[in-house]
Amino acid sequence: MQRVNMIMAESPGLITICLLGYLLSAECTVFLDHENANKILNRPKRYNSGKLEEFVQGNLERECMEEKCSFEEAREVFENTERTTEFWKQYVDGDQCESNPCLNGGSCKDDINSYECWCPFGFEGKNCELDVTCNIKNGRCEQFCKNSADNKVVCSCTEGYRLAENQKSCEPAVPFPCGRVSVSQTSKLTRAETVFPDVDYVNSTEAETILDNITQSTQSFNDFTRVVGGEDAKPGQFPWQVVLNGKVDAFCGGSIVNEKWIVTAAHCVETGVKITVVAGEHNIEETEHTEQKRNVIRIIPHHNYNAAINKYNHDIALLELDEPLVLNSYVTPICIADKEYTNIFLKFGSGYVSGWGRVFHKGRSALVLQYLRVPLVDRATCLRSTKFTIYNNMFCAGFHEGGRDSCQGDSGGPHVTEVEGTSFLTGIISWGEECAMKGKYGIYTKVSRYVNWIKEKTKLT
């Protein structure tokens, strides 16, 4: 034993070699072989497995989906700052455009905790909710729209109204504003409101030439003092309507412009014939205590009207009353817009006519005020429907199939267009061939041609 100890002390290297040989010859039971080890760690190889990531292109799944990435790591994937920024906006807080917040056709661009709407022409605001041009839906104005110097929408209202708090709607500024039905039992019968379409306001006024200088022999019209197929109006439903009495009662109609003036057809009036105007009328054979009678003290036909040349060209006249009318729910003026808007309103496509005229061709006159909704007829169809001249200051309205029309005794009465609950004068009943005849239409004086003249002559002093 002493000898062994001496050998170990003198030859430590020998001992180490012996131990190493023993270990190498022993069977290893701690580690699995290569094949079995792979069965336990069965993990798919990654895209760049075996390579240094710093030297390969980034992978979106590896960089940002398996674990949260930084902007720089995302930049490695896209290799483009702009594309990385677009991805980053949604990656950080989701897609803010998912709810489609942009209105009126706006395009949404996502941002971090926010979004941006790219608005089409005519709109602005956070969600493109603000109209900035009158060309689109009248700028959301209830009545009139004008573009300011910086191309912003400025709404306005006709006389007797003021802008509401929203700067879009119009509200009454006087007790009985024009064009409004205020009798409670008839307010439910107000005709369907007309909503502004998209309009090209630059070209809204037709490029028409008034044929002022045409000389033409007097034409022989049949029954051209021209509501057939209409309905009984309720008291106060058309408070701007008046009836004219002269040699015979209810020979023509008219509309209240203001307390002192009536507008009617020029062919209705004769110099030297006494005319009485009755406002607030409903049943011409009954006294309903809503009527107001006034005498006409002055007749002003349009300066281009000449019955000797043509009885229905420039067929418009103004009547001055001896005493002002007292405005109330049964006696209310009709609204008159400017030339541009009167023309736009007419193009809405349908209007209402009213009167006490004959209820059928050569038949009896109506006792109760009649009204009828009539569609506008395109000019080409209008011209083809008659052998008589249709001037540019006239328009056609009615039904091709016949059966409904204005008729004798309705002449001078109103053709009105309702705009968001307020009625505007767009025409004056003038003439036609018979009444409600198939293929024939009622012919009306186009008020847009005469609004400046009306307003100039009827100013209240």
Rank of each mutant, 00 (worst) to 15 (best):
Q2Y: 13
Q2N: 10
V4Q: 05
I7W: 11
A9G: 14
E10P: 12
S11V: 11
S11H: 09
G13F: 07
L14T: 03
I17H: 01
C18L: 11
C18W: 04
L20V: 06
L20Y: 02
E27T: 05
T29W: 03
V30W: 10
L32T: 06
H34A: 11
E35S: 09
A37M: 07
K45T: 04
R46I: 09
Y47K: 02
N48P: 12
Q57A: 14
G58W: 03
G58M: 04
L60K: 14
C69K: 07
S70L: 14
E72M: 15
R75F: 06
F78A: 09
N80C: 06
T81C: 08
E82D: 15
E86H: 15
F87I: 15
D95T: 12
D95Q: 14
Q96W: 13
Q96C: 14
Q96S: 14
P101C: 02
I112R: 13
S114R: 09
E116I: 04
C117R: 02
W118Y: 06
G122S: 08
F123N: 14
C134W: 02
I136G: 09
N138H: 11
R140Y: 05
R140P: 13
C141G: 00
C141L: 00
N147H: 09
S148G: 10
N151D: 10
T158G: 04
G160I: 00
Y161K: 00
Y161H: 03
L163F: 01
P172V: 07
A173D: 13
V174S: 07
V174Q: 08
P175V: 07
P175H: 06
G179Y: 00
R180G: 03
S184V: 11
S184H: 06
S184R: 06
S184F: 12
L189F: 11
R191E: 14
V199T: 12
A207S: 10
E208A: 11
E208Y: 13
T209M: 10
L211G: 10
I214M: 05
Q216L: 10
Q219M: 09
N222Q: 07
N222K: 07
D223S: 10
D223C: 11
T225V: 09
V227Q: 09
P235N: 07
Q237H: 11
P239V: 01
Q241G: 05
V242H: 00
V243S: 09
V248P: 09
D249P: 12
G253E: 05
G253F: 07
S255M: 04
I256N: 01
I256F: 00
N258A: 04
N258D: 03
E259G: 03
A265R: 01
H267S: 11
H267V: 02
V269T: 05
V269A: 11
T276H: 04
V277M: 03
N283V: 05
E285C: 09
E285V: 11
V296D: 00
I297K: 13
R298P: 00
I299F: 10
I300W: 05
Y305F: 09
Y305V: 02
A308E: 12
A308K: 12
K311D: 05
N313A: 09
I316F: 01
L318Q: 01
L318D: 00
L321E: 00
L321S: 01
E323T: 12
E323Y: 06
L325S: 00
L325F: 11
L327C: 03
N328L: 00
N328R: 01
S329D: 15
S329T: 13
Y330R: 14
Y330C: 03
I334S: 00
I334L: 08
C335D: 00
I344Y: 11
F345T: 01
Y352A: 10
V353N: 02
S354L: 14
F360E: 10
F360L: 15
G363V: 06
G363F: 11
S365P: 04
S365M: 08
S365V: 13
L367Q: 11
Y371R: 11
L376Y: 07
L376V: 12
C382M: 02
L383E: 15
L383P: 03
T386W: 13
K387H: 12
N393L: 02
M394W: 12
M394Q: 04
E401N: 07
G403T: 14
D405N: 11
S406F: 14
S406N: 14
C407L: 12
D410L: 06
S411Q: 08
G413S: 14
V416Q: 10
E418K: 05
S423H: 14
F424M: 00
L425M: 06
I428T: 02
K438E: 15
I443V: 06
Y444P: 00
V447Q: 00
S448Y: 03
Y450A: 02
Y450C: 01
I454L: 13
I454R: 01
K455C: 04
K455F: 05
E456A: 07
T458F: 00
T458D: 01
K459F: 09
K459T: 15
